[in-house]
Amino acid sequence: MRVGFFHTCLIDMMRPEIGFSVIKLLEAAGCEIVVPENQTCCGQPAYSSGDRKAARALAEKFVEEFEGFDYVVIPSGSCGGHVKTHYTDLFSDDPVWLARMQRLAPRVFELTDFLYNVVKIEKLPGEGKNNIKGPVTYHDSCCGLRELGVQKQPRALLEKAGVTVKEMKDHRQCCGFGGTFSLKYGNVSAAIVDEKCKNIQDSGAEAVVLGDLGCMLNIEGRLRRTGDNTTRVLHVAQVLAGDA
């Protein structure tokens, strides 16, 4: 099966090592991976800020670049949620583009959902290979959880990789990032992430694992700024691939 890998802006620009972990996982699942060189942003920041013209242009670009693949895999519930649930809104006034997106949408998957429900991966590269000695806790990103139903999948895969998950209090609660929300409402965002960081620390886990780099950067940044230099913050792809 040919899989188009949409690596997201944040991974491409800030943590490319996560992208290589994703490729390792998809190769282990027997996929033929294609990474379109001209891919850019999914358009979520523009859409969330009310710039429908820019968001629509990026949506069209995404569809043109990825509609030819058997599946599209995105290692981000946020970007995946935007593509699957909001592109149809952007194309609602154009029957031709709407039809193209409706044909593509069922083939777009968040990474752990794809590994668990589509390819049903049997052997993970990270089984017994991670430098994780104790339990981890898992943060459910808002979009992945509420728009894509991603919750069971990452936990089941972590268990398969031999990693114990110890749930924190309010693991389904927002970390306060929310893209442009954290810029517009900085004080509110900081209060939310402070509560999330406390719940992570109170869990006693050595690391927090999650599936969105935006949440990851927000949580890790706040932990470090408040003096916590020991709690590890890891993308689920890194753990499943044995790169943690």
Score class of each variant (00 low, 15 high):
Met1Glu: 12
Arg2His: 11
Gly4Lys: 01
Phe6Ile: 02
Cys9Tyr: 08
Met13Tyr: 12
Arg15Ser: 14
Pro16Thr: 04
Glu17Trp: 12
Gly19Thr: 02
Phe20Tyr: 15
Val22Lys: 02
Leu25Ile: 10
Ala29Met: 06
Gly30Ile: 05
Thr40Arg: 09
Cys41Val: 01
Pro45Trp: 09
Tyr47Gln: 04
Ser49Thr: 14
Gly50Pro: 02
Asp51Leu: 08
Ala57Trp: 10
Lys61Phe: 11
Glu67Thr: 04
Tyr71Asp: 09
Val72Ala: 04
Val73Arg: 03
Ile74Leu: 10
Ile74His: 04
Gly77Cys: 02
Gly81Asn: 01
Lys84Arg: 15
Thr85Lys: 15
Thr85Arg: 15
Thr85Gly: 11
His86Thr: 06
Thr88Asp: 14
Asp89Val: 12
Phe91Lys: 01
Ser92Gln: 13
Asp93His: 13
Leu98Met: 13
Arg100Trp: 00
Met101His: 15
Gln102Arg: 15
Leu104Glu: 02
Arg107Val: 02
Phe109Arg: 01
Asp113Thr: 07
Asp113Arg: 13
Val118Leu: 04
Lys120Asn: 15
Ile121Trp: 13
Asn131Pro: 00
Pro135Ser: 13
Val136Glu: 05
Thr137His: 05
Asp140Arg: 05
Asp140Ile: 04
Cys142Arg: 09
Cys142Ile: 10
Cys143Arg: 11
Gly144Gln: 02
Leu145Asn: 06
Ala156Gly: 01
Leu157Lys: 07
Glu159Arg: 11
Glu159Ala: 14
Lys160Thr: 10
Lys160Arg: 14
Thr164His: 03
Thr164Ile: 15
Val165Cys: 01
Glu167Trp: 08
Asp170His: 14
Asp170Val: 07
Arg172Met: 11
Arg172Leu: 11
Gln173Ala: 15
Cys175Lys: 00
Gly178His: 12
Tyr185Ala: 13
Gly186Ala: 13
Asn187Thr: 09
Val188Lys: 10
Ala190Asp: 12
Ala190Tyr: 12
Ala191His: 10
Ala191Gln: 14
Ile192Arg: 07
Glu195Asn: 14
Lys196Val: 07
Cys197Tyr: 02
Val208Ser: 04
Cys215Ala: 01
Ile219Gly: 04
Arg224Gln: 03
Thr226Ile: 05
Asn229Tyr: 13
Gln238Trp: 00
Leu240Arg: 06
Gly242Val: 05
Ala244Ile: 00
